[in-house]
């Protein structure tokens, strides 16, 4: 799936979070942790992103446990491919930035 357009920060971090199964609240906490509290996902934004990712088949919801109504989500193979592409794209951005800005500490 060649995806040339950039992912949003929220989507990139949600997909990274879902390499392990998580429910909504867990994703929100994990994204805050990963970004060092720079990025706080609001609940409405997170819900919209999860719905779209489910539709695209980049994530799937796990069959719910009987004692919990909270849905858990996990990344799919297609989703991992998207993350891989985005990683390469970001790497290119960083490397070109480094070359031109001239910082050697990357």
């Amino acid at each position: 799936m060649p995806e040339s357009t950039a992912l949003t920060e929220a989507v990139y971090y949600i997909l990274l979070s879902l390499y392990e199964p998580m429910h909504g609240y867990g994703i929100m906490q994990n994204v805050s942790k990963l970004s060092g509290d720079r990025l706080t996902l609001a609940a409405g934004t997170l819900y919209g992103a999860l719905s779209t990712l489910l539709e695209r088949g980049w994530i799937q919801s796990l069959p719910g446990e009987t004692n919990s109504r909270k849905k858990e989500y996990v990344i799919t193979a297609a989703g991992k491919q998207v993350v891989q592409n985005e990683y390469s794209r970001l790497k290119e951005l960083i490397e070109n930035g480094a070359k031109i800005i001239g910082r050697a500490d990357l």
Partner: peptide
């Protein structure tokens, strides 16, 4: 629990 917003990026605000 801190500042409360339903949307945290431009795209989801645009949708609303």
């Amino acid at each position: 629990e801190g500042n409360f917003d339903l949307f945290s990026d431009i795209d989801s605000r645009i949708v609303h």
